[in-house]
Simulated assay, not measured.
Amino acid sequence: MCRAVLESETDNSMAEGVNNGIVYLAAIPYILMGGLIYLIYRSRKKADR
């Protein structure tokens, strides 16, 4: 249903908004996991000293 609505629009502003939302929702878990891995790496490196 979303695809039909997005394809029927004359301007692509709604489609771009949906695509940006998907990118943001997909990027957040990667950013959180990257931060967690960095914190673990930093704490282990500090413990080795």
Rank of each mutant, 00 (worst) to 15 (best):
R42I: 11
R44D: 04
P29D: 06
G17D: 15
A47K: 06
N12I: 01
S8T: 06
R49H: 13
L32E: 08
R44M: 07
A47G: 02
M1E: 11
R42D: 14
K45R: 11
R44F: 13
T10H: 03
E7H: 04
A26G: 12
M14K: 07
I31V: 11
K45D: 02
G17Y: 08
R3G: 00
Y41D: 12
I22T: 11
R44K: 05
R3L: 12
L6W: 00
N19C: 03
A27Q: 14
D11L: 03
Y38S: 10
M14V: 12
V23T: 14
G35W: 09
G17Q: 07
M33G: 02
I31E: 07
R3Y: 14
A27M: 05
P29N: 10
A26E: 10
I40P: 01
E7A: 04
I28T: 14
L6A: 09
M14W: 08
E9D: 02
L25M: 06
L6C: 06
K45P: 01
I28C: 07
V23S: 06
I28L: 13
A47P: 02
I40L: 06
Y30H: 10
R49N: 12
L6D: 04
L32K: 09
R3M: 08
T10W: 05
M1C: 06
N20Q: 04
E9P: 00
I28Q: 08
S13Y: 00
R49F: 12
G34C: 09
M14H: 03
K46C: 07
L32P: 02
V18K: 01
D11S: 04
S43Q: 13
I31D: 14
E16Y: 00
A26V: 13
L36C: 08
K45T: 09
L6Q: 03
A47N: 03
A4N: 07
L36S: 11
L36I: 14
T10A: 04
G21F: 00
L32T: 09
N19Y: 15
L32A: 12
G35N: 12
L36D: 12
L6V: 02
S8L: 04
S8N: 05
N20L: 00
A27T: 13
S8D: 08
Y38R: 10
S8K: 03
E16R: 13
E9M: 01
N12A: 01
S43K: 13
D11F: 00
E7R: 09
Y30K: 11
R42H: 05
G21A: 02
D48S: 15
I31Y: 15
G34F: 04
E16A: 08
R3S: 04
Y30N: 06
L6I: 10
